[in-house]
Amino acid sequence: MRDVITVAHLTLLEARRRRIVLAGAVCALAFLTVFSVAVVFAYREMARDGTISFIERQGTLTAIMLVGFMAANFLSVIFAILLPVDTLSGEIDSGVVQTLASKPIDRAQIVLGKWAGHLLLALSYLLLLAAGILLVIRVVAGLAPAGVPRALPLLMLEITLSLTVAVAGGARFSTVTNAITAVGFYGVAFIGGFVEQIGGLAGVGSMRTIGILVSLVSPADSMWRLAAHYMEPEILRSTGMLALGASVPSPLMVWWAIGFTALTLLYAIRAFRRRAL
């Protein structure tokens, strides 16, 4: 465990020195600035317009919050994929890992240390964005969405899964191949989610089935859809305004995502142990 912490510490130090932390913080701040400006203007305009009821206004602001979460989730997934994309493959190519792996540590500890270090950064990024969104929506509109405590762990699971896929790919592929594979893996889930939603809206069973099958292969996006469902207030859900309830993933999908993440991490360890360095 001590060696895992040592490697994780090196990973965090590297991220700080390579200004990854700074870049992440600046981008998060930029995102939150745009989001807060949009919420402030939307709120003021709706407050001035006497024809919009209180419930309509709160519904619209909740919808804006959900869009904000969708964007934050997307950015966090991309961050989680790109952050560790070269951590193993790059160090294998450059030979850096030879010095590391010749030390008296198990290769699993190298994988776990890098995974843990990057995961800490990626989850911090997600939580920073989520906290910013919630703060803005609370301060400007006085909204405190009830489903957030249930939704956030799901988003964290999605980030963990996406990051684990990128780490595992790095143990097997070159950096570019890994980036293409990891983004493609998320892209498939993303498209699968759309197909499922449209199938649900249009009542086309086969489309829903295809979407569900895609989610089984790549369960990342289903975590977002379940989280969004939890965050969507009942009143908004009944209007069908955001079309989030057209096809809600089964809660069993959460267990599958956890299992998928664990299996992928085990694969990463196995692949790295067998890899010629």
Binding site: D3, T6, L13, R17, S94, G95, Q98, T99, K103, P104
Partner: peptide, 27 residues
Amino acid sequence: IGFLPEHFRFHDTLTATELLRFHGRLY
């Protein structure tokens, strides 16, 4: 065992002291 690989490279943002401290901890 000690090992100096051909074309030794390590994370180049570290200082020599940090490099040695990190590897020392792994030992």
